[in-house]
Amino acid sequence: MDALSGVFDFSDYGALLSLVRNTLWAGLLLGLVGGLVGVFVVSRDLPFAVHGISELSFAGGAAALLLGVDVVTGSLVGSVLAATLFGVLGARARDHNSAVGVLMPFGLGLGVLFLSLYEGRASNKFGLLTGQVVAVADVQLAALAGIAVVVLAALAVLWRPLLFASLDADVAQARGVPVGLLAPAFTLVLGLAVAMSVQVVGALLVLALLVTPAAAAVRVSSSPVVVPLLSVAFATTAMVGGTLVALGTTIPISPFVTTISFLIYLACRLVARLRRPADRPAAPAVPSPAPEPATP
């Protein structure tokens, strides 16, 4: 109990809210971007790519921290580089997951190397991995907002053809949709979204924003309109709710974000399970055989 009392302290909670204003705005941006991008991450089966990009984004942020330059820029460079490499290597090897699996430990190793050489505050090192609740400065928030605008504009252009290609790539290609160009284009968009998320929730737990909300949404709906709305709502709830809870603790923000996101996913699975018997069509009645005519 004494250990828990040292972790949770909500006595000055009202005064602390002003310290996380930028983080709350960043959470809203991440919920919007992560929820929308996550729809295609799930439909195109790219969760492993999200984790791989986050490792190289972490390496870029750690390098920027070591060199004393902007961490957002470093993470962005790492994410874009990862997205480009995954697109090229995946296309040549015809096995996207293998390319991700090769580059992911390389990025993580580079990030650990850069952090071990960094002699600054330990909280800066820890924040790149697990996030920090009050780490979003005005300049960083402006950078995140700029990236969000680029991602949303790209999604507005790519949404319809990307949705078509995600549902049935062969039919989409037969209809003239440039399927070959959509894949690398979306990978770059995904890289930008990962770079945004790493700045707040850390590199290790990006999946809680870019995969879990959308995975929960598809459990309770198959509508192309409802699923993105639910995904954004779930991601925003996890992000903002995790921030508000973490504010009264000494624990980083990411465990709360991931816990809320996971609980939402479990609730959606439960709802899907409860709805399944009611939605399942009843078996057609088998007519009883007609009686045989009596023999004289």
Score class of each variant (00 low, 15 high):
R121T: 10
E55L: 06
F8E: 10
A143C: 11
P281A: 15
S98H: 06
G27M: 01
A169L: 09
L244A: 02
A216H: 04
A135K: 01
L46T: 01
V37P: 07
D168R: 13
P47G: 07
A193V: 07
A214D: 06
A143R: 11
F86T: 00
A154D: 11
L108C: 04
S54W: 01
T23S: 14
L152M: 15
V177Y: 04
F40R: 02
T249G: 08
T259W: 08
A62T: 07
V194N: 08
P178I: 05
L117T: 05
L16G: 09
V225W: 11
I251F: 12
L274N: 05
V112R: 04
G52N: 00
T73F: 14
L129H: 11
L270C: 07
G107R: 00
A154R: 10
V77L: 11
P224Q: 15
P255C: 08
V194P: 07
S43Y: 08
P47E: 06
A82Y: 00
L144R: 01
F40V: 06
A64L: 01
L108R: 03
L163S: 08
V257C: 05
G68A: 12
P47L: 03
G191W: 01
Q199I: 05
A63V: 14
L141T: 10
V77M: 07
L181A: 13
R92S: 10
P293A: 15
L28K: 06
A62D: 07
V100G: 00
T259P: 13
A235Y: 03
L205N: 01
L144W: 03
L29G: 09
T212P: 11
L81D: 08
P224Y: 14
A3W: 05
L36S: 05
V80F: 02
D70T: 07
G31D: 02
L128D: 01
P296M: 15
L28N: 10
F48I: 01
I260E: 08
R92H: 13
L182P: 14
A282L: 07
L65R: 06
P289D: 11
P178H: 06
S254Q: 05
V72F: 08
A235H: 06
G87R: 00
Q199R: 12
V7Y: 15
P291V: 09
G101A: 14
V211K: 00
A233S: 15
A169R: 13
S57N: 06
G6L: 13
R92I: 08
R219H: 14
V211Y: 00
A235E: 07
V37T: 06
L32P: 12
